[in-house]
Amino acid sequence: MIDRYEKCKVKWNKVFGKKEITIPTKIDTGNEVINKALDWTCFETHTILDFGCGNGSMLFYCALRGTKKHMGIDLSSSDIVQAKIRQQKMNFGLYDFIEGGIEVLSDIESSSVDAIILSNIIDNLYPEDANKLMSEIKRILKNEGKVFIKVNPYINDKQIKEWNIKIINKNLLDDGLYLWNQNTEEWKCFLQGFLVLENYQEVYYPEHDQYNRLFLMVK
């Protein structure tokens, strides 16, 4: 069976294979909106999962905020190798980094996780896989558990044409990675089919001159 995320693995393996091995030493991520969102996510949180964890940075920022048990899941082997090397440099927190995708979540006990991070991952999945992911997230999350969900900017029709982005089907795009290109109201509608929206904010990245969309949600 052909893995439709193979090109994503190849891309991220190249990116993270070249990353310098360092760890965060303070809670400041460099973005105030993200800082406050992580403060909210980590408050009274013991166990936290980051699906699409990359090289583990978000979990390390959580550990600096007092979380204790951390699980990271990512398709990229290079990401996971880097995350495991980096965890050795952390003086506190327990970590479990696993290479894999949504199938890994089936091994996690129901109602066992206090908080979950989905940072720029759910919109890089096929819609049917995003549905599977959210169903699993709801299952493994404790009652009143928290979810930090960040998605990429919405790309309008003019931008799709100007940037020569491939349309796979309807609003599923290929811009080098997969992009489920929904506007903010569409994302709210989708996510609220699984969880309750606590807060919505936009995150500005001056280095890219663009806004990501951040949904803070509870079960």
Rank of each mutant, 00 (worst) to 15 (best):
I121K: 08
I122G: 06
D123G: 07
N124D: 05
L125Q: 11
Y126R: 09
A130S: 10
A130Q: 04
N131R: 07
K132E: 13
L133N: 07
M134A: 01
M134L: 11
M134P: 03
I137M: 08
I137R: 00
K138D: 01
K138V: 02
R139A: 03
R139N: 03
N143I: 13
E144I: 02
K146S: 05
F148D: 09
F148I: 02
F148T: 03
I149C: 09
K150E: 14
V151K: 03
V151G: 04
P153T: 06
P153A: 08
P153M: 05
D157T: 01
D157H: 02
I160H: 05
K161T: 05
E162F: 01
E162G: 01
E162P: 04
W163C: 03
I165R: 02
I167V: 15
K170R: 14
N171T: 11
N171Q: 11
L172A: 04
D175M: 10
D175L: 10
Y178E: 04
L179P: 04
L179W: 05
N181K: 06
E185S: 14
E185C: 09
E185W: 05
K188F: 04
C189H: 11
F190K: 15
L191K: 10
Q192S: 13
G193W: 07
G193V: 06
G193E: 13
V196F: 10
V196T: 14
E198P: 07
E198W: 03
N199C: 04
Y200S: 12
Y200Q: 13
Q201H: 12
Q201R: 12
V203P: 10
V203H: 06
Y204R: 02
Y204N: 04
Y205F: 15
P206K: 14
P206H: 10
E207N: 13
H208S: 12
